[in-house]
Amino acid sequence: MTALGFLYPGHSGEDDYPRIEQLLGSDVRLDVVHTDIGEDARRVDALRRMYAPERLADGVGQVRLAGAEAIVWACTSGGFVHGWDGAQEQVRALATAAGMPASSTSFAFVHAAKEIGVGRVAVGATYPDDVAGLFVEFLRAGGLEVTALSSAGIVTAAEVGALDEAQVLALARAADDPGAEAVLLPDTALHTAAHLPLLEKELGKPVLTANQVTVWEALRLTDRRVNAPGLGALFTREPIVQV
């Protein structure tokens, strides 16, 4: 059994995780621990405060007690708003506190895109424009080219968590661009685990979503590869071998 730990802020799209665990169909356990979200507002200042160490300390302890082999900060915006260097320091501090390999959803997007061999991506963000722009900057710092950005301007995680399949598909379609090799939907508050096959069928290209890449990143940290067609191209392709 491979146990993976996730620090998830608040309550919105976390029921993606038991669904993903079921779709993995393997000896993988996903342990989700909720952290204090503070103010549910998609403002840069509020998002930066979300990762305060005192808010995560109890969660880190719970993940350790659960016997997890890796831990991921399951909040895209709570990572990239600190910039590339700040997000790296965040992950290093998390690894030290937890005593295990660590990462975040922001880095998961960069690693996942490279895993499936894409360099040009379109972004369908739920965030306001200024926050979405910081995610684009983060991706570019990670070596990805962003060909298009669509921002829905939603200001709370609660609103994002209430979006249905048709609205998620509309978000992806609005973001899609002929020059993009994949579409990214960066919000762990967004329910996407049940919609990945439809999203990729409708767009005709890989779609990377926050909770999907977060779980994949935790598996990567433990050197696990699980074939799960219901979770999209990321979970069905062979890893890209760099020469």
Rank of each mutant, 00 (worst) to 15 (best):
E217Q: 15
H11S: 13
M100I: 12
T35M: 07
T96Q: 15
L169K: 00
L56S: 07
E21H: 04
L144H: 04
D177K: 11
E39V: 14
D27S: 12
E54D: 15
L190I: 04
A182T: 12
R220T: 11
A166F: 06
A52C: 11
V183A: 07
R224I: 00
R48S: 04
R19F: 14
A162S: 15
L134V: 10
V72W: 00
A3N: 08
V123T: 12
A46Q: 13
V160K: 02
D45A: 14
G117I: 03
N227E: 09
I20A: 00
R173Y: 02
D45W: 08
D164P: 02
T192M: 09
E69M: 04
A210E: 05
L144D: 01
T209I: 07
V243S: 12
G124H: 10
D130S: 10
V213P: 02
S150T: 12
V146P: 08
T214H: 10
A95R: 08
V32I: 14
F6L: 10
G13P: 13
A93W: 03
Q62E: 13
G124M: 11
V110Y: 00
V28K: 02
H191Y: 12
R19C: 12
G79A: 15
Y17P: 05
S106E: 01
A93L: 09
Y51I: 13
R173W: 02
A74R: 03
S26T: 03
V28F: 01
V155C: 01
L196T: 10
V241T: 07
I20T: 04
E159V: 05
A52I: 07
A46T: 15
L198T: 06
G5M: 01
T188C: 13
R225T: 09
L163D: 06
R29K: 06
F135K: 11
A180E: 14
V63A: 06
L94T: 07
E202F: 05
R225W: 07
D31E: 11
I71M: 05
V155G: 02
L171E: 04
A170Y: 01
F138A: 02
D31S: 08
V131G: 04
E115W: 06
I240N: 04
Y8L: 07
I116C: 10
D129V: 15
L221I: 12
T214P: 10
G204P: 02
A157I: 00
I240W: 08
G117K: 08
Y51R: 09
V72P: 03
P186Y: 00
D129W: 15
M100K: 12
W216T: 11
A233K: 03
E39Y: 01
A122H: 07
V81L: 09
G143V: 14
E200A: 03
E115V: 02
A3V: 14
T96I: 11
A132W: 03
I240Q: 11
A3H: 07
I240S: 10
A166W: 06
D177Q: 09
L134C: 07
A158R: 01
A68W: 00
V28D: 01
G179P: 09
R29I: 00
A95L: 07
K114C: 04
P18N: 09
A125K: 12
T96D: 15
P101V: 12
L144G: 05
F235G: 05
G179H: 14
P128Q: 07
L139V: 02
H111D: 10
G61D: 00
D130C: 06
G142V: 02
M100W: 05
S106C: 04
